[in-house]
Simulated scan of single mutants.
Amino acid sequence: MAGFKQLLYYTFRVLHMIVNNIMAIPAFTVWIILLSPLRKLQPSLYWQIERILFKAILSFVVMWTNSGGYKIIESGDDLATLHDKRVLLLVNHQSTADIPCVMSALLPKSNVIGQIMWIMDYILIYTNFGWVAFLHGDFFIQQGKEYRDSQLDLLKRHLLDVYLPTDKRWIVLFPEGGFLYKRRPRSQAFAEKNGHPVLNNVALPRIGAMNTIIDTLSGPAQKSADEPSRKLEWVVDMTLGYPKGEALDMPGICIGWWSPRNIHIHYRAYPIADIPVTCDAQQQWLYDRYTEKEALLEHFYLHHEFPDMSLQEKRNLPMMNQREVPFDRVWFLIAYAFYAVSAYVFWIYIYYPMWSLISSLVSYIF
């Protein structure tokens, strides 16, 4: 009986996820199309609305995480003063579950999730989330040595043509360039050959994207006193830890396959003035951060929480007590109702008429 109930539970979550996607993603797309004239006439107003629509649709992903019993526990620097700043967020990459975990951590933080720019593998553009991310203005990067220089040039153009004009603030970057289980063997071989630390809990990070972002966004802080800063202001190092080092995956989170557990996140923030200027010095700085991540995760896997570092070294922001990241159910219900009503209205006035027209044309032709 328990197995049958569990099967029903998985089935319900899968069906609910399918309904969510069918309901929300086309509705988001239609809203973006309907609002497109406003993008030309009043771009600032358009992007304010788009941020709300984007935050609302990401709350669905956070709901799948929270309702499955996967709680996010955060510690380290308190980022409350950075919500409206231009921030580069560096995250260690273990699996597809990292994405909903980062979303869950950032959703309650004011407008951060609405003004965020993700840097993700180009293959994700062919997924449901990838389509939404494309419309939002995220950047899709292609891996491989043969693409490296051209991709970094495209990233620079994207920052200048999309990130700044649309007034996005936070940038999410996974510097390891792939999942840990894929990158670790090559990373360790490279470290042994070149005299770098041999890491087990993280892979050696790549510097290209970070260097491009810092160089591109190192111009004048602002054009006028009334405009927001155009310069990158902070780099936040986010260390993500799964119990026992057993990374989950996004499909498993969505259907509730994994048993409920706490997933821990630790923040450490650095003002941009603390980041070296040259590429070689930035690479060493980034290696140092990932060596620290290695030690943090080693402690976490042994003690099931990140160490209290408040008395060990100077921090640039006040530190928070370890706490669970809240899930705003009221906001989610509003977002859910909005997309449900939008889907119903669009079905009556857009989807069904278009479907009827296409069916008639196909019948006429064939």
Rank of each mutant, 00 (worst) to 15 (best):
A295Y: 08
Q284H: 06
D274M: 11
F332T: 09
F332Y: 15
E294A: 04
F306S: 01
E294T: 06
Q312W: 10
Q282W: 00
V277Y: 06
Y301K: 05
R315T: 12
F306Y: 10
A281H: 13
E292Q: 15
N321P: 00
Q312C: 09
D328G: 10
Y336L: 15
P307I: 10
F327P: 01
L302V: 14
E305F: 01
L302E: 15
V341N: 04
A340R: 13
Y301R: 10
E292N: 11
V325F: 00
L296V: 01
H303L: 12
A281F: 06
V325C: 05
Y336C: 13
A295H: 11
Y270C: 08
M309S: 06
V325K: 02
L286G: 06
P318I: 00
Y287R: 07
K314Q: 08
T278Q: 06
F332C: 12
E292F: 14
L311I: 07
A340W: 15
L311K: 13
N321Y: 03
D288W: 10
A335D: 13
F306M: 02
S342Q: 10
D274C: 07
Q312A: 10
W331M: 14
V325I: 08
R323P: 03
R315K: 10
A273D: 11
I275Q: 05
D280Q: 09
W285M: 03
Y270I: 09
E324M: 00
P307R: 11
E305H: 12
P326E: 02
E294D: 04
P318G: 03
W331C: 09
P307F: 08
R289S: 06
R323W: 03
P326R: 01
L317M: 11
P326Y: 02
V325P: 03
R329A: 07
Q322E: 15
Y301H: 11
V341H: 04
H303G: 07
D280S: 09
Q284S: 06
I272M: 04
L311Q: 13
D274T: 14
L296H: 00
Y336H: 14
E313V: 08
V330G: 13
E324P: 00
W331A: 15
D308Q: 11
P318D: 03
Y339S: 12
F306K: 00
R329F: 05
R315F: 10
S342D: 11
D280C: 03
P326S: 03
A340T: 15
L296D: 00
V341D: 07
F306Q: 01
A295W: 05
E313W: 08
